[in-house]
Design a protein around this nucleic acid. Structure first.
Lengths: 228, 228
DNA sequence: CATTGGCATATGGTATACCAGACATGAACG
DNA sequence: CGTTCATGTCTGGTATACCATATGCCAATG
């Protein structure tokens, strides 16, 4: 079974991809890697400089940049330059809200479509956390995998794609979220309830739990995370 | 009072769009206009031919096509050609499901955020339909406007953007949906209930009604609409 | 000293030439 | 007659040259 494609997509590059695709991936991970919300962050990009550093021509690079532009990661404005986009806090909150809508629908779908393999996977991702001492940051791999498992169990691939796109942006605040012990503990408890609801096939409950779980994150970000 | 305009007339724009943007729009509407599910539909595109017909060079056209590719409207395969994508029925159903998730969330948000203007707008779009004899096809302008009004009332712009993207694809089946009198009548009744729930501020009810309303459409398409 | 006009320059936008891979065709060969 | 392989042609991919405009510097001017 193929997991939802994650940001950690293994690079199966046989060097056979088009330069555009490689430039796209390189740019994307480069932007994701840098902390764009640092005051010292350089938000301006230079086509010619980039093409030189990548060792490719401007044409494929421009196509990659155009894609990033449409994705909202970058803004290219004529005769001015290319700028890395800083999402406003309001936009981040909107994204988390959309996330809540989609994942809660996925949970609902999971109640109808999830097979034994999906259920087993969900348990595998929640049961080990009886020991609360484990790290479970908001964006820890374990947490992300859990949410992806729900989406996968729902069986609607489009939901996975959209959320992947959102995560690309939301992850920018991962360094700014405060990992609080209470939140982690609560989060684990939420997860267990969600799995139970899905296993029971209670669609309304599963949807409600997932929605509230994610909206709790939204409210937390709204209150405690500062985004310039 | 008529202020003499002190500054010169506002400059609407002077053809200031980039060729890429214009090619993008042209391609998009052209694809939307043609019935891509006709057997006789030509699904193959030719870069050079298109560039000649648009009267532009291949570079901006390619950028436009790359955007359409990412949007899923078109698929460009290296050394093979550019193909208009036919969405499978399963993909269409997934899209409607996502639609349901997002619009129901918008309805929930509307219960918190909708102002008097939004409520008034919703009434304006539903009250005239006491006369059921009106045409209200699944994709009639009136119906679309109603759903857009809900999304607008929710105040989450991202939801609107995503749904716009989906609608671009889903509209392809508009010609294939059967307009049944009963469905139209039921649809109008649903709309009225939804407005009432939002006006009352009952978020859970509004969300549920919108979700069920849209999932009804999904089931209808699933059962009655054939997509090659 | 302030203002303004022009020119240099840096930026992205566009056009064009050339490259390599994938198919189709047809002739040569068994 | 059938198979195979060479070659022509069509495709998108890439590189490069050139173009238009936004900006900033600087000098000319009042």
């Amino acid at each position: 079974m193929t997991m939802q494609k994650t940001s950690l997509t293994i690079n199966p590059i046989g060097e056979s991809q088009s330069l555009k695709a490689r430039a796209y991936e390189a740019m994307k991970s480069a932007i994701a890697a840098m902390n764009i919300y640092d005051d010292s962050a350089e938000l301006r990009l230079d086509e010619r400089d980039l093409s030189a550093r990548f060792g490719i021509s401007r044409t494929p690079l421009r196509e990659a940049l155009a894609q990033l532009d449409q994705e909202g990661l970058v803004r290219v404005v004529a005769r001015r330059g290319i700028f890395i986009v800083r999402k406003t806090k309001a936009e981040i909150l909107d994204m988390i809200t959309v996330w809540a809508a989609l994942e809660s629908m996925a949970a609902r779908l999971a109640c109808e479509n999830a097979g034994p393999a999906n259920i087993k996977e969900l348990h595998r991702l929640t049961d080990p956390y009886d020991d609360v001492s484990r790290q479970l940051g908001e964006y820890s791999d374990a947490n992300i995998r859990f949410h992806q498992a729900i989406i996968h169990a729902g069986g609607n691939a489009l939901i996975g794609e959209i959320i992947d796109g959102l995560f690309l942006h939301v992850r920018a605040i991962r360094n700014r979220t405060i990992i609080e012990k209470d939140r982690a503990r609560q989060s684990i408890a939420d997860h267990k309830k969600i799995v139970a609801a899905i296993e029971k096939g209670d669609a309304d409950l599963a949807e409600q739990l997932v929605r509230q779980h994610t909206l709790k994150l939204r409210d937390h970000v709204k209150e405690f995370v500062e985004i310039p």
